[in-house]
Amino acid sequence: MDIDAGGVTARRQAPPRRVQAPGPRLRPVAPTGTVACPACGRRFVFERYKADLNVCTACGHHGRVPAVQRIAQLADSHSTEPLELHVGDRDPLHFDDGVPYVQRVARAREQTGIEEAFAIARAEIAGTPVMLACMDFAFLGGSLGSAAGEMFARACELAVGERRALVAVCTSGGARMQEGIASLAQMARCSVGVASVAEASLPYISVLGDPCFGGVTASFAVQADVILAEPGARIGFAGGRVIEQATHDRLPDGFQTAEFLLAHGMVDTVIDRRQLRATIGALLRLYSGGS
């Protein structure tokens, strides 16, 4: 069940809104080299905003973060080894809605500089070896297709093989509609990966970013031992607008925000991005026996 929470669609992803999530390959917004906080509009010098982890120092709004930048934010410096997982192209339905699906994927690759909706890296976080799997919302809405599912499953297997903890940063609109039923199957494939990590008694920490919906939330994103959520992130199964239209129910205040889910017992903590690395590091030490 996949939604378009606040515009989470493949179609609306291109081009990415640079003001929200300056990518590693994107130039700062010309000509001033500044970006505006999407919440309060305060302008920041691009490099300054990036140094603040895309968190607005004026209002605290957490902006979107490209996957490659996520890895840099979380991993100990010089510990990162990006994994080039060549998973190939898939287009089971030969999908074409005016622009052929394979072209959309190619365009997403150009725009994000990554192969698929995941960037995977071996790394250390505060000295603990981890396998880091970070989703990129700018890649077709972070949607889960079979190539991305294969990447996540391989990341799990490598984590088991190398006895590393698994850390996933999840931000996605859900299943990739253009792959039809094959994309639904990825929920099962990714769950097999999580099950193998659990079977090996390795810790799995999941970070839910804005937004996280559909088949991603309803599978590996919430199958973790510890679930962390970023402030204000919208997280759920069906999108709020879809629910409002289908049921005509009034949505409660703060519906589907990280804070709402914390109050309903669905996540372990809501954590400021500037504390995220230290928190994951501390948790990993605890789950690795304190050594």
């Binding site: 939330t217 309803a218 590996f220 199958q223 069906a238 049921t247 309903h264």
Partner: peptide, 21 residues
């Protein structure tokens, strides 16, 4: 799966993810 306020409040995604595992 039902898309509604109560279903979301009580963790529809969590229930499905647990069922898969």
């Amino acid at each position: 799966a039902y898309a509604g306020v109560g279903a979301e409040e009580r963790g529809q995604a969590w229930a499905i993810a647990d069922s898969l595992l």
